[in-house]
Design a binder for these strands. Structure first.
Lengths: 230, 230
DNA sequence: GTTTATAAAACTGTCGACAGTCGGCAGTCG
DNA sequence: CGACTGCCGACTGTCGACAGTTTTATAAAC
């Protein structure tokens, strides 16, 4: 592994090594600098990043809990390889969480929440016009995070955050999503309308449609179930 | 392949220190040997358990991701202290997950699933007659885990498992639940009936009632929001 | 007696090192 | 020629130690 993508040694500022390593690994995995199923060498990473193995190990455990890595005892950490079934499961869980959230939100839709969401949709639409796919995805996720937040259950948001890491992975793996970026962006307006209507049923219908579209964009060309070789 | 006579899985279980420490801590927290909000000293734990600090730290990170601990930078790890709001949030999330699961399950209720669930309810009822509260809780959770499992989304089950740790904590904190153990046990029958009917709506109603009862038992005498003193 | 300044203690974050283990490779035996 | 065995390198799991920071204890000043 020549690791040509590796960051300069001084990239890591002495501040919170574990988090920094975790962030670095997250980016590297999502950008597919490490292939799914690939084994991560602790020593190699330590050398590349210029830190010791302790923070690398702790960061790896963090990413394991986020579903980006899996650990095999005495073997080390491997990049999570998602198959089609797990793909569907992730989106199904997402649907579960967001349905619940939006139904709650519909019944407690404050002016503050409305303004925040509308503003975020504007940001999202703006991002959709540009070419920065990463930013578009992040703004999209941010909209949904806001929705979860204003739904009033922080634990729900936390669960969603635990999922966004995998979601990013899902999206990144198929990344050829740019069929109709503006379509996805504008489809958020329907969510706003449903919320404004105050009808939980309408909200549920809207979110079902919304996530269904997103899933359809992503689940396309996903490989067969089974572990790609290490 | 001369391994057919060998005991299933590995006869020699060389369990990681990390997992062992994590299990120990989990038990200690749930049994309230560590009070909520209390600070955990890494060195002290290392000495008590006879291991070095590295596995203790990694175990603590694991428990942090499970919601039993929280880490404050440069301060260390603290036992999670749940207030009434977080309490409600946990149960609300649980409701969200189980609604989704049971509605799915209703549409794919196999004979295998039905048999497994009915058997588990029997085990649960049996456990309810005894005095072992811990076992009752575990059997209860196991029933719900089975339900999630047969719903066909492993990711959903994983999310639930991430919640069971907190659930156990919730239950342990209030632990005076033994008002009517058999009531709770038998109330599972209603879930079985709803599933057998094949109606998602009936299932939803049943699970709403079921979890509502459970929550009512637990949410009682929960303190005010805010951090209890160390 | 209370408050501030200072010193000591305790603790976390991080590191380098050692030992046991795993996978692969070569050599050996059938 | 194929299967088994023992060795070798690489790596993980774990440890003890050091440095910087936070907290506590102590002392001085008001």
């Amino acid at each position: 592994m020549a690791l040509s993508h590796v960051a300069p040694k001084a990239f890591i500022q002495h501040q919170n090594l574990v988090e920094q390593v975790a962030d670095y690994l997250t980016q590297a995995i999502i950008q597919q600098h490490f292939l799914p199923g690939e084994r991560l060498s602790e020593v190699q990473l330590s050398k590349d990043l210029g830190v010791s193995r302790a923070p690398v190990r702790e960061a790896a455990r963090l990413l394991e809990s986020r579903g980006l890595l899996i650990s095999k005892p005495r073997r080390g950490f491997f990049v999570r390889a998602l198959n089609a079934v797990e793909f569907e499961d992730v989106f199904d869980l997402r649907l579960c969480l967001e349905r619940h959230a939006i139904e709650h939100l519909a019944e407690r839709y404050s002016v503050e929440a409305q303004r925040a969401l509308e503003q975020q949709v504007e940001v999202l639409c703006e991002a959709a016009l540009g070419n920065d796919e990463t930013r578009r995805i992040e703004e999209d996720l941010q909209f949904h995070r806001l929705m979860l937040h204003y739904a009033g259950n922080e634990r729900l948001l936390k669960a969603f955050d635990g999922l966004t890491h995998e979601l990013r992975l899902c999206i990144a793996l198929i990344t050829k999503t740019h069929d109709a970026p503006d379509t996805i962006a504008t489809s958020h307006f329907k969510l706003l309308e449903a919320l404004a209507s105050g009808s939980p049923a309408a909200c549920r219908e809207a979110i079902d449609y919304h996530i269904g579209v997103a899933r359809k964009f992503v689940v396309r060309g996903v490989g067969e179930p089974g572990e790609p070789g290490s």
